[in-house]
Simulated assay, not measured.
Amino acid sequence: MSMSSLSSVGRRAAGAVRMPAAAWVQGGWMRREEAIMGTSISVELWSEDPSAGNAAMDLVIGEMHRIDRGMSPHKPDSELSRINREASVRPVPLSEEMFALLARSLEFSRRSEGAFDITFAGAGRLYDYRERIRPTDAALAQACAAVGHQYLELDAAARSVRFARDGLRIDLGGFAKGHAVDNAAAILARRGIRHAFISAGGDSRVIGDRRGRPWTIGVRDPRRPGEIIALLPLEDAAVSTSGDYERYFDTPDGARCHHILDPRTGKSPDSVRSVTIIAPDGLTSEALSKCLFVMGVERGLRFVESHAGVDAVVVDAAGALHYSSGLLAAGAQPRQ
Score class of each variant (00 low, 15 high):
149 H>Y: 15
238 A>E: 08
265 T>D: 12
2 S>V: 14
312 A>R: 14
70 G>D: 11
259 H>P: 10
329 A>K: 07
66 R>A: 12
169 R>T: 10
35 A>D: 03
288 L>M: 12
132 R>E: 12
15 G>D: 13
97 E>Q: 08
206 V>C: 01
262 D>Y: 05
99 F>A: 04
77 D>H: 08
104 R>G: 00
6 L>K: 07
130 R>A: 09
44 E>M: 15
290 K>R: 15
130 R>V: 09
259 H>M: 05
147 V>M: 09
149 H>V: 13
100 A>R: 15
61 I>R: 02
136 T>L: 01
255 A>R: 15
171 D>L: 13
124 G>K: 01
293 F>H: 07
296 G>Q: 05
68 D>N: 08
121 A>Y: 03
182 D>G: 06
252 P>T: 11
185 A>Y: 03
102 L>R: 05
57 M>G: 07
336 Q>F: 04
201 G>K: 00
102 L>A: 03
133 I>Y: 03
126 L>S: 06
112 S>N: 03
140 L>F: 05
56 A>E: 09
308 A>G: 12
101 L>N: 04
91 P>V: 04
195 H>D: 12
204 S>G: 08
224 R>F: 06
278 I>G: 11
102 L>K: 03
144 C>Q: 10
20 P>N: 05
5 S>K: 12
183 N>S: 12
136 T>D: 02
175 F>P: 06
56 A>F: 00
288 L>W: 06
30 M>Y: 14
192 G>P: 13
170 I>Y: 13
274 S>I: 10
175 F>L: 14
79 E>F: 00
280 P>Y: 03
122 G>M: 02
178 G>C: 09
42 S>K: 00
324 S>N: 08
287 A>I: 07
225 P>G: 06
5 S>A: 14
28 G>W: 05
156 A>Y: 05
228 I>L: 08
168 L>V: 12
309 G>P: 07
234 L>C: 14
24 W>R: 14
164 A>Y: 07
138 A>R: 13
80 L>K: 02
197 F>M: 14
202 G>V: 07
30 M>C: 10
13 A>Y: 06
57 M>V: 13
290 K>T: 15
110 R>W: 14
169 R>M: 15
293 F>P: 06
318 A>D: 14
1 M>I: 13
56 A>S: 14
129 Y>V: 01
241 T>P: 04
56 A>K: 05
251 T>Q: 00
97 E>F: 06
277 I>F: 07
222 P>Y: 00
308 A>N: 09
123 A>V: 02
301 L>E: 06
31 R>E: 00
108 F>P: 11
137 D>N: 04
180 A>T: 02
